[in-house]
């Protein structure tokens, strides 16, 4: 399912609760860290990057810009 701000917020909040309540086992920590990082990166990127749709629309207008070097 597509990630949204709401879901990312909710999932992160749960992960924080789990880890602060010592409910995460050491052997699953690496996996949880990875999950948290994906969620954080998603939020940070989406706040500051133009949506893919918009981006591709912009690129369509200027198709040659990226290829030239």
């Amino acid at each position: 399912m597509e990630l949204t701000y709401n879901k990312a917020h909710e999932k992160l909040s749960k992960l924080v609760d789990l880890i602060e309540d010592d409910a995460i086992q050491l052997d699953t920590l690496a996996e949880k860290v990875k999950q948290a990082k994906v969620l954080i990166d998603f939020c940070e990127a989406k706040l500051r990057t133009i949506d893919d749709e918009v981006k591709s629309a912009l690129l369509d207008k200027k198709p040659s810009v990226k290829k030239k070097k």
């Binding site: 990312a8 992160l12 948290a36 954080i40 940070e44």
Partner: peptide, 11 residues
């Protein structure tokens, strides 16, 4: 974003 930063630090 403050929430996210807070989560990040706490996590």
């Amino acid at each position: 974003e403050s929430d996210i930063i807070d989560f990040k630090e706490r996590f």
